[in-house]
Design a protein around this nucleic acid. Sequence first.
DNA 1: TTATGATGTAAAGCATACTTAACTTTATGT
DNA 2: ACATAAAGTTAAGTATGCTTTACATCATAA
Lengths: 67, 67
Amino acid sequence: MRNKLKVLRAERDWTQADLAAALDVTRQTVNAIEKGKYDPSLPLAFKIGRLFEMPIEQIFFSGAEEA
Amino acid sequence: MRNKLKVLRAERDWTQADLAAALDVTRQTVNAIEKGKYDPSLPLAFKIGRLFEMPIEQIFFSGAEEA
DNA sequence: TTATGATGTAAAGCATACTTAACTTTATGT
DNA sequence: ACATAAAGTTAAGTATGCTTTACATCATAA
């Protein structure tokens, strides 16, 4: 699953640590999600959507590869 | 996290087993999610959204309780 | 009553999400 | 060169998502 976190962060000039704090997760978690190491849980995805004020589908997209 | 799975299923007259098959998960998984025992992973939530042709936020909603 | 389909539930196991702690790399500025 | 901030990465541990197997409950119907 790909995502726009890095761009959304850049638009706001936020560090990974800033975003992590806003989401109440660790910096490592933000880094891992941003780098596609794993997908966020649904609750965390909702938090992200709320924070950036956009639908989850506009932030995360399941590339053609996945089921 | 609450959800409308039971209603969406009812509207289509699908059993939990039908939905499970459509999502390629087990019947127990559908039952557990439907009963709020746990939340689906983000990829599964996407599949559900695609299947019912509606945004994830229209199927799942984080009630006031959760972070 | 007996059978059948749908739903509910539980235990054990594997995979994934997330944490803490620590170290490395890259870029920027002095 | 040295310091610092940001990003990248790793290991070990806990929690959650999902599977398989199995059994229990409930409604409908023959």
